[in-house]
């Protein structure tokens, strides 16, 4: 099944949280990547029918999601907040989910879902006694109980220990391979890297990148970068830089040098050495194309 977003925007008063996003989430695992506050949760809530888009449409195979409770037959949702009743046992919680879906054999479905997340042993304890990672897995079990074809997870790995995290990642990957449409949001690159081949990058509410993970990463690093360099002797530095193939073009301006770097890694490695050899003191190196830079630095810094 496909979730389609067409020119979706969402604003709260004057604040735009999601800005003109168009994307299609198809079968397989998709990672929704972006720093905190990028609008990931807003986007995910719109896909889950818990927020109306201010503009554009969000549909599941052509049917509207907002105000349509029938979509939950196909959608499983794992919200970020601890949406669990502490006074129920894990078993009661997952069973209630199965009953609310009016499954023909709720006990059997609940048992299967608990087995999937390996929570059978703790199932008879009250949820309020669980650790954060256990609650998270219980939420996943409750969301999986009706075997939905679409699964939406908001920051699913938060609070899990490394072993639980590995297990959850395996589970998500397996379900993606089985043809389910899975979207999970995360602000941590490693998580996305391990689970999803396909990523959607959201930065400041805008759809910054989309596609295969490695391809995006390569494009981010390999695209030509524009740097502004100020030094003690701009002219001499320009002459030294132009000699290397990694600097595509160098122009001398009032504000300093503008260098278009074709091979980013090589350029960053090269610049200090060239300056040292030429006896030039570099005062300032700043990226001139700020907008993409935020995406870029986000990706290479490997953290929120």
């Amino acid at each position: 099944m496909n979730i389609e977003l067409a020119q979706v925007s969402r604003w709260y008063g004057n604040v735009v949280a999601v800005n003109d996003v168009t994307m299609t989430i198809g079968p397989g695992v998709t990672g929704l990547l972006g720093p905190n506050g990028a609008g990931k949760s807003t986007l995910l809530h719109m896909m889950a029918g818990f927020l109306a888009p201010s503009g554009g449409t969000v549909t599941l195979d052509g049917t509207r999601i907002w105000r349509n409770h029938e979509v939950y037959r196909s959608i499983g949702l794992v919200p970020e907040r601890e949406a669990v009743y502490g006074f129920l046992t894990g078993w009661q919680f997952v069973l209630s989910s199965a009953r609310l879906h009016r499954l023909p054999d709720p006990e059997d479905a609940a048992r299967k879902a608990l087995a999937l997340v390996e929570m059978e042993d703790a199932a008879d304890r009250r949820i309020e006694t669980y650790s954060k990672g256990m609650r998270q897995r219980m939420k996943v079990a409750a969301a999986l109980v009706h075997e939905p074809r679409v699964l939406l997870l908001d920051e699913p790995f938060n609070g899990m220990d490394p072993r639980q995290r590995m297990h959850m990642m395996d589970l998500i990957r397996a379900m993606g391979t089985a043809g389910k449409t899975i979207l999970f949001s995360s602000h941590i690159l490693e998580e996305v890297e391990r689970v999803a081949q396909h990523i959607e990058v959201l930065v400041a509410g805008r759809h910054a990148a989309s596609g295969d993970f490695r391809e995006i990463r390569r494009r981010m690093t390999d695209r030509p970068h524009l740097f502004r360099v100020r030094s003690s002797d701009d002219r001499r530095l320009a002459a030294a830089l132009i000699a290397d193939a990694s600097s595509g073009a160098v122009s001398l301006t009032e504000a300093g040098l503008e260098v278009r770097a074709v091979d980013f890694r090589r350029f960053t490695w090269l610049l200090p050495r060239v300056a040292r050899d030429a006896g030039v003191r570099v005062w300032q190196v700043s990226p001139a194309d700020e907008d993409l830079e935020s995406v870029f630095s986000y990706l290479i810094n490997r953290s929120g």
Partner: peptide, 8 residues
């Protein structure tokens, strides 16, 4: 959300 994300 547990109740609302169900086909009811």
């Amino acid at each position: 959300v547990h109740l609302l994300s169900k086909p009811i």
